[in-house]
């Protein structure tokens, strides 16, 4: 049995309570001031429901795209050598460093019908800017580093022995990936997905430029909160924030439970 459980667990819990739980509790406290019927009226209005659907739907979509391509990028960065690899690796972090508003404006400029990419999509009848597709693209941009940076260290740390063993037992490369490598990096991939999803749900700066912000159609939930704040309706803003927080808590908890279950199955 390793020592240090009391210290590390106690410190974790204390810091978590101080930095996260107490501040988040104030949101609930403020929303409680509204009273139940008004809370429901603000937090579950048709306009808010449409915004939740959009925010969570596009964040999940972007998370999935990032899980697939983030894994691919991490794989290529860890396993292969090619010219310009360092540049590519640095490029992955770009969304962390670029102010989100700049990213939003750049993406909008790309995907409007006159933009570099938009002009080719326009004749095909595909609209990206000011639709949910544009929002998803912005969230893919924001979330990619989370997946790559979660998977990369685990993939790099994975010993080659298990793959050699699989190969000597006659497994094809695909079988080795499917049954040996993927289960090992699965938890990291799920973490990356969860982080990209979580970040996407709350994202504001990069999305508002490309979404067009049409109420009920391309209006994201964080924008709804800002709208409330601009009217000095702090309690209303916290009502929407509470609904969002509970929903994302439920989704994240589900992801983490799946992860814990798969780990138990693997460990057995």
């Amino acid at each position: 049995m390793l020592p240090g459980f009391g210290l590390s667990f106690g410190f974790t819990l204390a810091w978590l309570t101080l930095i996260v739980l107490i501040p988040l509790a104030t949101i609930f406290l403020k929303a409680a001031g509204l009273g139940w019927s008004e809370f429901l009226a603000v937090g579950f209005s048709p306009r808010a429901m449409a915004a939740y659907r959009l925010s969570f739907g596009t964040a999940a979509m972007a998370g999935l795209v990032n899980a697939v391509f983030g894994l691919l990028v991490a794989w290529v960065l860890v396993r292969y050598d090619f010219p310009g690899k360092q540049v590519v690796s640095a490029l992955v972090d770009l969304p962390f460093a670029l102010p989100t508003a700049v990213a939003g404006i750049a993406l909008t400029a790309l995907y409007t019908p006159e933009g570099w990419i938009g002009q080719f999509l326009e004749p095909l009848g595909i609209k990206v800017a000011f639709t949910w597709i544009g929002i998803s693209i912005a969230l893919v941009f924001i979330g990619l580093p989370f997946v790559v940076r979660s998977v990369e260290p685990v993939l790099a740390d994975l010993g080659r022995e298990v793959e050699e063993a699989a190969a000597t037992l006659g497994a094809t490369r695909w079988q080795t990936f499917r049954h040996v490598i993927f289960p090992a990096i699965g938890p990291a991939l799920l973490t990356g997905f969860a982080l990209a999803f979580a970040r996407g749900v709350g994202e504001y700066g990069s999305v508002i430029f490309i979404s067009g912000n049409m109420p009920g159609r391309t209006e994201i939930a964080p924008l709804l909160i800002v709208t409330q704040l601009e009217q000095y309706a702090y309690a209303g803003a916290t009502a929407i924030a509470v609904v969002m927080m509970l929903a994302s808590f439920a989704v994240l908890l589900l992801i983490n439970l799946i992860q814990a279950a798969s780990r138990r199955r693997m460990g057995a």
Partner: peptide, 26 residues
């Protein structure tokens, strides 16, 4: 454990719009 990890994740999902408000409320 899953609950603890989820609580650690939570700040990511809180919109930056809200996190500023939180500290003003406090």
């Amino acid at each position: 454990k899953a609950l603890l990890i989820t609580l650690i994740d939570l700040p990511f999902s809180v919109s930056p719009v809200v996190s500023g408000l939180i500290f003003v409320l406090l």
